[in-house]
Design a binder for these strands. Structure first.
Lengths: 283, 283
DNA sequence: ACACCAAATGTAGTAAAATTACAACTTGAA
DNA sequence: TTCAAGTTGTAATTTTACTACATTTGGTGT
C-alpha cells in the first residue's frame, strides 16, 4: 500500500507536531527520502523522536524503514499494461504501446505457465528419440525457431511447414518420439488431426496452446499459455512472443538437465559460426 | 535508471568480492533492502567497507542511498531484471528468470529504438513495390514471421531461407523495392553481401541489427536494437524477441498508415481462416 | 624466481544516525 | 487547582555507516 496515500488519509488522526512532519514530507517527498532524521526534524521544527514516532504510527519499523516505503511510493510505478493502439497514435506512441503490451502479455503468460508440466516436458524432451515441431500460420515461425534452438543440441529434430510433410512425418512416429504442436487458438483442424495421427503412432504429443481447446484435448501434455491478444489488429502478436519465450524455457531446461559438459558442446556449435562472420574488434 | 539492471550489466566490471555482494543482492533484493550493511556484509562473506565501496561504484552516495535506489527498483515500476540462469535452478526458478529477462530485454530494446527511423521505414514499406525479409540462423524465423504478417497486407512479400535464393532475389531488385535484413550481430558475411547486392540494384536496404556493425554500414536505414544477450546459453534468445516485437511495430505502423478501410481487409483475411478451424462456442 | 607496484580487501577506530528511557510540558475534566 | 492522559523534548545509548590505514593479492618486468 502506498505510504504517501496513507499519510494523506491519516492526516486527521495525527497530533499537532506529527501534522507538521506530514506536511513537510508531503510538500517535498523527494527531499525527505534523502534526509536524515535530524534534518527532517529540524525542517519540521520538531524533535527527532517525534519524527520517529510519526514513522511508527504508519506501521513502519522506524525512520529508515519509513524512507524505504516512501522511496517505493515515489518510484514512478506504472506497471506495464496492455494498451491498445489507437488510430491516431504517433509512431512514438504506437511503438511504446506495442512494446509495453508485449511485456504485459509476457507477465500474464508467465503466471499462467504450469511449472510442473514444464518440468515433465523437459524430461520428455531430454529422453526423446526424435523431436518434431509443427505449427501453421503464425505459429510456423515459432516452430521454425524451436528447430533452430534444439538443432544445436545434437538431437534429431524435425520441422516442416508443409502440412502433408507434417502428416507423413507423424505417420512414421514411434514410441519415444515427441511431437510438439504449436497453436494459439488450438482450433486449427489440421493440427488437431496431426495430434491424433501422432498419438496413434505412439508418439508423445505436447501442445503449446490454449487450455481446453480441441488441440489441448488430443495432447498428452499441454503447456497452456493464456495470452490476451489485441484482436483489433487481426494478427497474432503477443501469443507468438509468449510461445517463443516458452520455447526458450524448454531449451534452457534441456541444457540444464544435460549438465555442464553439454554446455561445452553448445559453445562449440556457436564457435563454428565464427568463420562465417566478420570479427569484432577485440575478440 | 534501474539499479538492479545496472548491477547486472556491470557485473563483469566488478571485483571478486564485489561480485559476491552483487550475487547476494540479486538473489534476494527484498532481503537486501531490509538489512544493515553489517548483515549484508556477513551474507556476502565480505567486509563492510567492501559493501560500501560496491554501493559507491554504482554511483550512489553510500549504503543507505543505495538501499533507497534498490527499493525504488523493486517498486512495481520496472520489476524485471536480466537474471542469469544458474546451473542449479529449479524449473520454477529458470522459468521465471527467462520470462523476466525477456521482459527486461524488451524494456532495454524499447528505449534503444529510434522512433524517427521507425517512422521512415514504415513510410518506405507502405510505398514499396516489393518487400523482402531475409535472415539467417536464428533470425530466419524472425524473417519468416515477418512474412506471415506482411503477407496479410496484400503486398508482394518475399522470404527465403536459402542463401542462394536470397541472392538471386536481390539480383532482381529494382528501385522501389525494400529489403529488410535481420541479424542480431550484424556480422554474418553472407548477409552483408546481400545488402551490397540489393543496394547495387537500387533497392532500399533496411537493417534490423546492431548499430555500427558491418551490416549496419551497408544499410540505407538501420533499426538498431541494443539487447543484452545472455551469452552463457550460447543461443540467441532475447534478441529474437526484440526483433519480433519490432516487426510488430512496423506491421502496426503499416496498418495505421493505410487507414481504416485497410483494416477491414485484414479482418477478411482472418475470417477466411474460419473454415479451417473448429468453432468456438459462441462465435 | 624475485621484487615491486597497483589494486583489492580487511581491521579498527570514528563519526553519524536512529532509538530508547525518561523528564517536562500541555490540555481538559473533575 | 489539580490530576491524569496524552504529547513533546532532552539526553544517553545503541546501532549503523564511514574513514583511514594496514594487509593481502595478483600481475609485471627484470
Amino acid at each position: 500500500m502506498n505510504i504517501l496515500e496513507k499519510i494523506t488519509q491519516n492526516q486527521a488522526a495525527f497530533s499537532k507536531s506529527e501534522k507538521k512532519v506530514a506536511e513537510v514530507i508531503l510538500a517535498n517527498p523527494q527531499t525527505a527520502i534523502h534526509s536524515s532524521i535530524a534534518t527532517l526534524a529540524k525542517m519540521s521544527d520538531v524533535s527527532e523522536p517525534t519524527v520517529n514516532r510519526f514513522c511508527r504510527r504508519l506501521d513502519t519499523k522506524g525512520f529508515p524503514d519509513f524512507k524505504l516505503h516512501l522511496a517505493q511510493s515515489l518510484a514512478n510505478g506504472t506497471p506495464y499494461v496492455n494498451r491498445h493502439v489507437d488510430e491516431n497514435d504517433s509512431p512514438d506512441e504506437y511503438t511504446n504501446k506495442i512494446f509495453e503490451s508485449t511485456m504485459a502479455s509476457l507477465e500474464v503468460a508467465r503466471q499462467s505457465v504450469d511449472v510442473n508440466v514444464v518440468n515433465r516436458v523437459v524430461d520428455l524432451l531430454t529422453q526423446a528419440q526424435k523431436i518434431s515441431f509443427f505449427g501453421l500460420g503464425a505459429s510456423a515461425s515459432v516452430a521454425h525457431d524451436a528447430l533452430n534452438k534444439f538443432f544445436r543440441f545434437n538431437v534429431p529434430v524435425v520441422y516442416f511447414e508443409d502440412i502433408l510433410m507434417q502428416r507423413m512425418s507423424c505417420m512414421n512416429c514411434s514410441a519415444g518420439d515427441v511431437v510438439v504442436l504449436i497453436s494459439h487458438t488450438g482450433r486449427t483442424k489440421s493440427l488437431v488431426e496431426i495430434a491424433q495421427i501422432a498419438r496413434m503412432n505412439d508418439a508423445t504429443v505436447v501442445g503449446i496452446t490454449s487450455a481446453d481447446s480441441p488441440l489441448a484435448q488430443e495432447c498428452s501434455y499441454v503447456l497452456s499459455l493464456e495470452v490476451p491478444e489485441d484482436t483489433d489488429m487481426y494478427m497474432p502478436m503477443a501469443s507468438r512472443i509468449a510461445q517463443l519465450t516458452l520455447i526458450d524455457v524448454l531449451a534452457t531446461g534441456f541444457t540444464l538437465r544435460r549438465g555442464n559438459k553439454f554446455r561445452e558442446n553448445l559453445k562449440r556449435v556457436k564457435d563454428t559460426l565464427r568463420g562465417s562472420r566478420y570479427e569484432k574488434r577485440g575478440d
